[in-house]
Design a protein around this nucleic acid. Structure first.
Length: 287
DNA sequence: CTTCTTGTTACTGA
DNA sequence: ATCAGTAACAAGAA
């Protein structure tokens, strides 16, 4: 599932591909994937040139020249943004074309944006939970206000993290998944962060010692940073904008490894259910 | 057939 | 007001 490292990987790649390019054609094949009236969506985006691509938590934000509207893109669980570079460019570089497993568009392609240099961006989403939405500055601000601290920026300090914990009493995992507090962790990295910090995901926030808070803080940073370096985790559906898998799956310590030996202590990893989510941990070395 | 998968939101109850 | 827990959403895999 695309969490912060996966979305950041897509953002960085897409930045190289579409900044400075103009939208020349728009095809909305599934209306509900675009959370605007279709005519507004098309009228606002057509012939706009991409100025910047930013990210907040798991949310991508595309900015354009000459307009205040921002295109928000959320991939939710199975969304993909696949960019097909111009044919001649790929053939010249010796790459196969198209460079994807199946020809695009396919049955999961819901929106297609074509660009001035011939590249095509496909928004695919098997479960149809993801969306594109144009927002004006007021709505943009309202949306961003709901996001908590970015865990891989300088804003994410031990003091800020400690303040967020506050007087909360819920389980650590619920805290980590709450996007309004720390934005960007999902089910995979929440479990991984708990393992790295040697803290059980069902531990109550108010039971954590100062040392444990520090370990959890550091684990969040380390896990996300390392996952970005490996271009994210492809557990099932995630692909980057070139259709490639991320490399972090083989570095996962507990997620998806129930029944296997803990790589730290040799204990058996268990899978439980917490805050409605499958949760993986080692009961032997996580306390 | 049932159960499981997850990001986010709406809703409920404390 | 704030927090925590749960259902719901969708569609495919097992």
């Amino acid at each position: 599932m695309p969490e912060l490292p996966e979305v950041e990987t897509i953002r960085r790649d897409l930045q190289e591909d579409i900044i400075g390019q103009r939208v020349t054609k728009i095809d909305v094949r599934l209306a509900k994937s675009v959370r605007n009236p279709e005519d507004l969506f098309v009228r606002t985006l057509l012939n706009r040139t991409v100025k910047a691509i930013d990210r907040r938590g798991k949310l991508l934000m595309v900015e354009f020249d000459g307009t205040d509207w921002t295109l928000l893109i959320h991939l939710r669980m199975t969304g993909q943004l696949l960019f097909q570079r111009p044919k001649q460019e790929l053939v010249a570089g010796g790459h196969p074309w198209p460079p994807f497993d199946t020809p695009l568009p396919n049955k999961y392609t819901h929106v297609i944006l074509e660009f001035s240099k011939g590249g095509i961006l496909f928004f695919n989403d098997l479960r149809q939970f993801g969306y594109m939405k144009l927002v004006d500055p007021a709505e943009r601000a309202a949306v961003l206000k709901q996001y908590g601290v970015e865990p891989i920026t300088d804003d994410f300090t031990l003091d800020a993290f400690t303040d967020l914990l506050g007087k909360r009493k819920g389980p650590v995992k619920g805290f980590l998944l709450n996007q309004t507090l720390v934005s960007g962790l999902g089910n995979i990295y929440a479990d991984e962060a708990c393992w790295h910090a040697q803290i059980r995901p069902d531990r109550k926030i108010n039971s954590l010692s100062r040392a444990e808070v520090r370990a959890l803080f550091q684990a969040c940073r380390d896990v996300l940073t390392e996952a970005i370096e490996h271009r994210g985790t492809s557990f099932r559906d995630y692909r980057d904008s070139q259709g490639r898998q991320g490399g972090y799956a083989k570095l996962l310590k507990v997620y998806g490894r129930a029944g296997e030996a803990c790589p730290r202590c040799g204990g058996t990893i268990i899978k439980t259910r917490l805050v409605g989510r499958g949760t993986h941990s080692c009961p032997a070395c996580q306390r």
